[in-house]
Simulated assay, not measured.
Amino acid sequence: MDTDEGRRLIRVVQTCSAGPSQWDAWTVDGQYLYLRYRHGEGCVEWHPDPGFYDSPESWNEGRSGLLVEWDDGTDGGVISLEDFLAAAGLVLAPGASVS
């Protein structure tokens, strides 16, 4: 999951614009990522698909994991997608769909 392809997003869908800011995203190689920013803390998790982000079994079986997390010290709950991607080390692929 640390490859360059795994950090380029082809599709991003915002699922919450208030605190927390969160998105469903897919990499160019098809990996689903859950992006979340709450209380100044950002995280990017990888999962089999959107239905698994809160599944303990998925985590226990190694089908889910943490790609990156950070704390910006602000205790904020809202962040732009551009700022989130920069902090997480992710980029939009050319022609990416963002909604």
Rank of each mutant, 00 (worst) to 15 (best):
M1E: 10
D2S: 13
D4Y: 10
D4C: 09
D4H: 11
E5K: 15
R7W: 03
R7V: 02
R8L: 15
R8N: 09
I10R: 15
I10P: 02
I10C: 14
V13D: 15
V13N: 15
Q14I: 01
T15D: 13
T15Y: 08
S17I: 10
S17H: 15
G19L: 11
G19P: 12
P20C: 12
P20S: 07
S21P: 03
S21V: 01
Q22D: 12
W23P: 01
W23C: 00
W23D: 01
W23S: 00
W23T: 01
W23K: 00
D24N: 15
D24F: 08
D24G: 05
A25G: 02
W26N: 02
W26E: 04
T27W: 01
T27P: 02
T27R: 01
T27M: 04
V28C: 06
G30F: 07
G30Q: 09
G30P: 00
G30E: 11
G30D: 10
G30V: 09
Q31F: 05
Y32L: 05
L33S: 03
Y34R: 11
Y34N: 07
L35Y: 01
L35S: 01
R36A: 09
R36T: 09
R36D: 10
R36M: 11
Y37N: 00
Y37E: 01
H39V: 09
E41C: 11
E41A: 14
E41P: 03
G42D: 00
G42H: 02
G42N: 01
C43P: 03
C43F: 10
C43Q: 11
E45S: 10
W46S: 04
P48Q: 04
P48A: 09
D49I: 06
D49G: 12
D49Y: 10
D49F: 08
G51R: 14
F52Y: 15
F52W: 13
F52M: 14
F52D: 12
Y53S: 12
D54S: 13
D54L: 13
P56N: 05
P56I: 05
P56W: 08
E57A: 13
E57G: 12
S58K: 00
W59P: 01
W59F: 14
W59C: 08
W59S: 09
N60W: 11
N60Q: 14
N60K: 15
E61M: 12
G62A: 08
R63I: 05
R63F: 04
R63T: 05
S64V: 03
G65V: 03
G65Y: 05
L66P: 04
L66A: 10
L67H: 06
V68T: 13
V68R: 10
V68F: 11
E69Y: 09
W70I: 06
W70S: 00
D71Y: 07
G73Q: 06
G73T: 08
T74Q: 05
T74E: 08
D75K: 13
D75F: 11
D75G: 10
G77C: 06
G77I: 03
V78I: 15
I79T: 02
S80L: 08
S80Y: 10
D83M: 07
F84I: 03
F84M: 02
L85D: 00
L85I: 03
A87N: 07
A88V: 08
A88S: 13
A88K: 02
A88G: 08
A88I: 06
G89M: 05
G89A: 07
L90K: 00
L92W: 01
P94M: 05
P94C: 07
P94K: 08
P94G: 06
G95A: 09
G95L: 08
A96Y: 04
A96T: 08
A96H: 06
A96Q: 07
V98Q: 09
V98K: 11
